[in-house]
Design a protein around this nucleic acid. Sequence first.
DNA 1: CGATGAATTAACTTACTGGTTATCTAATGC
DNA 2: GCATTAGATAACCAGTAAGTTAATTCATCG
Lengths: 107, 107
Amino acid sequence: MQLNDTFSALADPTRRAIVARLARGEATVGELAAPFDISLPAISRHLKVLERAALISNVRVGKHRRCRLRPEALTGAQDWLEFHRRFWTGSLDRLAAHLKTSPRTKK
Amino acid sequence: MQLNDTFSALADPTRRAIVARLARGEATVGELAAPFDISLPAISRHLKVLERAALISNVRVGKHRRCRLRPEALTGAQDWLEFHRRFWTGSLDRLAAHLKTSPRTKK
DNA sequence: CGATGAATTAACTTACTGGTTATCTAATGC
DNA sequence: GCATTAGATAACCAGTAAGTTAATTCATCG
């Protein structure tokens, strides 16, 4: 389930920080790991989670591995949020309209 | 951490379904539980997670408890997604511009 | 008041997550 | 070929999450 993976990937602050970092440009695993004081294997697994969610991709260049964001990845989550937010502000509008149309039809 | 709560709340398909249902209008806990074949306590706890994420609120009406979505709740997550998506398509644009400006400055 | 019905809380189980250290793989440089 | 360096995998541990059934709260109805 793609949305599951996306949302749960983004639920972790370390992973969001990694995404934020990558939004500013590509980076190697080591560069990504540097700001955090957790072990490299931990970072490696975070990256794997992000990969499984299709949020990043990586390519081997020499002995480094260069990571980048995948532009299309966030759209699924964004669309979901957008759809439901609009839908229900829509309902609120309808409610407001209803209250306006039938002012004191209490009970 | 608000974004944590929001994203992890939305990471669960049952909770997303509940949000989707509520986007179409208020409902009692029992009504929300009906479509699922999990126990009521399980639903109750899902609702609590959604509450903690400020995605829903509820009010007691008689012996029922009526739930509704909170319009402002999704915006935090949405803003985060929007910001980073734009930022990094921005970087891609800059990359494209760079490639265009200096066509074959290879290595 | 006592019974019923809606929902939460408690206690428990199982599975997953995020971290660790230690080991392994693969590419570079001498 | 061997040492070094970047990174991934393995094995393990502690905390959290999601589900269950049983017990509890709270409001209505008779």
